[in-house]
Amino acid sequence: MQVTVNGESTELADGCTALDLVRQLGLEGRRFAMEVNGEILSRSAHETHRLTPGDRVEVVHAVGGG
């Protein structure tokens, strides 16, 4: 299935969870926050939340800023 991750179209296995996506992106254990379709997806829900085709996922972190 196709989902959009940080604006980029991304191919994922059907039934993939948010945690599967995190692993695919190599972000496991890193400090980041995730939003799916404009709603926060808390870390505790990554393992159980199944993504669906067309989901818009944002993965953010802290960068330098004033």
């Binding site: 991304t10 980041f32 993965v59 972190h61 802290a62 960068v63 330098g64």
Partner: peptide, 20 residues
């Protein structure tokens, strides 16, 4: 200290240092 929130660079080196 202030920080900004921005997209994580997908596909970049996973070992890339992080501000925090």
């Amino acid at each position: 200290v202030t920080v900004a929130i921005r997209r994580t660079n997908i596909g970049q080196d996973p070992g890339e240092p992080n501000l925090l």
